[in-house]
Design a protein around this nucleic acid. Structure first.
Length: 582
DNA sequence: GCACGCCCGT
């Protein structure tokens, strides 16, 4: 059905309105000239008001209710409008149910928007109903809807369902692969993402796009998979995946997270359209790799370029100060961020400050800062302070902090271990026994730490005392040999103050088989002298493994880079880049 | 050429 010239003129007028007031003026004009309730014009008007940038849900709901002959297009617009955020998604589903109730025929768009509502409010049941209706109406041939459905299942932790749909798909497009990848990431199957990327490249019909690369780079960063990340970088360059800045921003983050800040800087340097995200990524990268001064310099350069910092920029800047022990600078930035840049401190900013002050030994100041916050402190914040209590062996505050964690019902084994370590460092064995008994009584399990190492583009994961690896015999033999060599070189296992596995009867035994040692042994096994071994650990490295790594780097002539959480330890020739263990 | 869609950067 074609539309008249007059209708077209009015619609282009509606589209040209960039302000609500203009639209409202137009509204009264259209009412006066009896054009408003023309279905074509009404739809155009409603969608202008229901969707960003002028989105006004209550206003659009009101005029929608005034319209006497709602059709599927108008309902779609209303469902779509309400699917955009969590608060309104339930209302979106009400519109969907109303449409079904009125017997109006839905289309693929309707289901896509309704599914999007279900994802926002995590409602599996409604989604299942929509799925069966999609099948009944024969709408599953719509590829957008198909991938929405996959994403819906993935979002609701039904990864198996998403996989099933993917397997059934006759023509997988790029988005379907992307949804599958994000599904793996969500469900903790990060290591399976790499083969998926390779399969996608070898598939016919579609190739990885910018979104694929964003996903895969995120996985590389998280798994410390430099080799695969470099491969993705090559793919990006060779295939011209540079539609926006996003991919390059992610490359900066990936290289930084893999401990290659030089590579990150190479990418950064060659970008001629750096935005606030680019700068923030670079600043954070420099910060986490221990280049605090350079991070601050980058921040100042960014200001000179006329880019306004945002909250994430300050997270980077403050973490730079905390990683490099720049207490005064940190205080200065923290105090100026709101007044000079209009960025209100959030929980991450406070967290950086607590870390900064805590590491500097200003424990009371850190504690006061937490208590002065307008926002509720979370478990991470208390844990940061507890870590500082461990460094400075501050028993009294450590006990207070543990109580705060218990109040939050967030206490974990690691927290008690930190407290335990404070007591044992001070030789307070009665307290050590007491805490261990407490942990036993409460049934608190230590979560096994894991270390990952990449070899030939594949990521291997080890946990303490791991026996699951196919080459375990070789690895354990190598570890024994290393221990022997290190003993000859004068290494003594330090077991007095640090132990992560409190259930162990034999500390010495557990030390020998910490996950990072297994990963390093595997690395020595696989690589020739002169190469770099990169290990990522989810918990903090212990002082014994730190010494061990130092020695191995000298005796076996390897560079060893260990990332524990978000800090890097670079070992070379028997030295570590960080001056002390902490 | 009447609106509307899936995956997404620090």
């Amino acid at each position: 059905m074609s539309i008249s010239h007059q209708e077209r003129t009015i619609i282009s007028l509606i589209k040209s309105c960039t302000k609500k007031s203009h639209l409202l003026q137009l509204h009264s004009h259209l009412l006066r000239t009896s054009n408003f309730y023309n279905p074509t014009i009404f739809l155009s008007f409603l969608s202008r008001f229901a969707l960003p940038p002028l989105r006004d849900l209550s206003y659009s709901s009101r005029i929608f209710a005034e319209f006497s002959q709602p059709n599927v297009s108008l309902y779609n617009t209303m469902i779509r409008a309400h699917s955009l955020n969590h608060e309104s998604a339930r209302t979106g589903l009400l519109f969907y149910q109303e449409l079904l109730h009125l017997g109006i025929l839905s289309n693929a768009f309707t289901s896509t928007f309704a599914l999007s509502c279900c994802m926002k409010i995590k409602c599996l049941l409604n989604g299942l109903q929509i799925h069966s209706r999609i099948l009944k109406d024969g709408h599953l041939c719509d590829s957008f809807l198909f991938t929405s459905l996959m994403d819906f299942y993935s979002c609701l932790d039904k990864g198996a369902e998403a996989c099933k749909l993917f397997d059934e798909m006759s023509h997988r497009d790029t988005v379907a692969w992307n949804v599958m990848i994000s599904c793996y990431m969500r469900s903790g199957r990060k290591r399976d993402v790499f083969p998926l990327f390779d399969m996608m490249r070898n598939s016919n019909g579609c190739q990885p796009d910018d979104v694929t690369c964003l996903h895969v780079l995120q996985v590389c960063a998280s798994l410390n998979a430099l080799e695969f990340g470099t491969k993705v970088h090559k793919y990006i360059v060779e295939n011209g995946i540079n539609t926006g800045r996003n991919v390059f921003n992610s490359l900066i983050a990936m290289y930084s997270r893999c401990g290659c800040v030089e590579k990150a800087y190479d990418v950064f340097k060659q970008m001629d359209n750096k935005d606030v995200v680019t700068w923030s990524a670079m600043i954070s990268g420099l910060a986490s790799n221990g280049y605090g001064r350079d991070a601050i310099e980058a921040f100042e350069l960014m200001l000179k370029e006329g880019i306004s910092p945002d909250d994430q920029t300050f997270t980077g800047v403050l973490s730079a100060c905390s990683h490099s022990g720049l207490v005064n600078e940190g205080r200065k930035f923290f105090n100026s961020m709101k007044t000079n840049f209009g960025v209100r401190p959030n929980i991450h900013h406070y967290g950086c400050m607590v870390d900064l002050l805590g590491r500097a030994g200003l424990l009371e100041e850190a504690y006061d800062l937490i208590n002065s916050m307008k926002i509720q402190p979370d478990a991470t914040m208390w844990r940061t302070l507890l870590g500082a209590c461990r460094i400075h062996l501050h028993v009294a505050l450590g006990e207070r902090v543990i109580n705060n964690l218990i109040e939050l019902k967030a206490q974990e084994a690691g927290d008690y271990v930190l407290l335990l370590n404070i007591y044992s460092s001070l030789g307070n064995w009665d307290k050590v026994i007491e805490v261990r008994k407490l942990m036993k009584d409460k049934g608190i399990q230590t979560t096994p730490a894991s270390s990952t190492i990449e070899w030939k583009g594949k990521v291997y994961e080890f946990v303490a005392d791991d026996i699951s690896h196919p080459r375990k015999k070789e690895i354990y033999e190598m570890l024994d040999e290393i221990n022997q060599q290190l003993r000859i070189a004068g290494y003594v296992s330090e077991i007095t103050s640090e132990f992560n596995n409190v259930d162990s009867r034999s500390k010495q035994y557990v030390h020998s088989y910490h996950s990072e040692k297994l990963a390093i042994a595997f690395g020595i096994l696989c690589t020739p002298p002169g190469t770099t071994i990169r290990v990522a650990k989810d918990l903090r490295i212990c002082v014994d493994c730190h010494n061990f790594s130092k020695m191995v780097s000298a005796v076996y002539d390897r560079k060893i880079v260990i990332r524990d959480r978000n800090r890097f330890h670079h070992f070379q020739g028997g030295q570590c880049s960080c001056n002390n263990y902490w």
